[in-house]
Amino acid sequence: MYSSKKLLTGRYTCENQFYSVTICTKKRTQIFKNFESACIAIRGLVYMQNKVNTICYTLMPDHLHWLFQLKDLPLNDVVRQYKSITTVNINKFNYSNGSIWQQNYFEHKLRTEEDLINQARYIVANPLRAKLVNEVGEYPFWDCVYL
C-alpha cells in the first residue's frame, strides 16, 4: 500500500467536476450493519449538500460509494469534512472514540455524461452484487437523483 503522501502526489481537483469516491471503514469493520450508525453516516451526506451536489450514494456495511459534483471546496477537503463529522457523531452515539475510516480513499474523476450514468448505476447496484438484497428497493441505504 502506498503512503498517503504518494497517493496525493499529482492530484488536483476542479470546481464543478464530478467525482466518484469510495471511502472504506478502518480495517473494513462493518460499522454500518448497525442501523443507527448507518443513519448517522447518511445524515453526514445530507449535511455535505451545501458543499457538493450529490448525484447518488450507497452506504455498504463497511464502505461508502458516493458520486457528487464539487462546488467550491477541493475534493480532499470534502472527504475530510465528511469523515470528521461522521466520526464525531458515530463515536458520540456509541460512547467511543477513535477513527472509523481508513486514512485514504479511492476517487475517480468522471469525464463524460455516459461515465456519470454508468457510475451511478454501478453504485446503486452494489448491494445486489454483494448479495445483500435481491432487488435494489430492498436496500435502505442508497439514493440517486436519477431514480
Rank of each mutant, 00 (worst) to 15 (best):
S20Y: 13
T22Y: 10
C24E: 10
C24A: 14
C24W: 01
T25C: 15
T25D: 08
K26L: 15
K26C: 09
K27M: 03
K27D: 15
R28G: 02
T29M: 10
T29F: 11
T29A: 04
Q30G: 00
I31M: 13
F32Q: 12
F32D: 13
N34S: 08
E36I: 14
E36T: 10
C39H: 07
C39G: 00
C39R: 15
C39K: 15
C39F: 11
A41N: 10
R43W: 14
G44A: 12
L45Y: 10
L45C: 10
V46R: 13
Q49A: 11
N50K: 14
K51A: 11
K51Q: 13
V52P: 08
V52F: 12
N53I: 14
N53H: 13
I55M: 05
C56P: 02
Y57W: 13
T58R: 08
T58M: 06
L59H: 09
M60I: 14
M60R: 06
P61N: 11
P61G: 13
P61R: 07
D62R: 10
D62K: 08
D62Y: 07
D62H: 11
H63F: 08
H63Y: 15
H65P: 04
L67R: 05
F68S: 10
F68A: 07
Q69D: 05
Q69L: 05
L70A: 01
K71S: 04
K71Y: 13
D72W: 01
D72P: 02
P74W: 07
P74S: 11
L75N: 09
L75G: 04
N76S: 15
D77N: 12
V78I: 15
V78T: 10
V79A: 05
V79N: 02
R80G: 01
R80Y: 10
Q81L: 13
S84W: 11
T87G: 01
T87R: 03
N89L: 05
I90E: 02
I90P: 00
I90F: 02
K92H: 13
K92M: 04
F93I: 03
N94A: 08
Y95E: 08
N97I: 04
G98I: 09
I100E: 00
W101I: 11
Q102V: 07
Q102Y: 01
Q102G: 08
Q102F: 02
Q102I: 05
Q102P: 01
Q103H: 02
Y105V: 12
F106T: 01
E107R: 02
H108Y: 14
K109E: 14
L110Q: 02
L110M: 09
R111F: 06
R111Y: 05
R111A: 00
R111W: 03
T112C: 02
T112R: 09
E114K: 07
E114T: 09
E114Y: 06
D115P: 00
D115F: 07
I117H: 12
N118I: 06
Q119W: 00
Q119S: 05
A120S: 15
R121L: 13
R121W: 03
Y122E: 03
Y122V: 05
V124I: 15
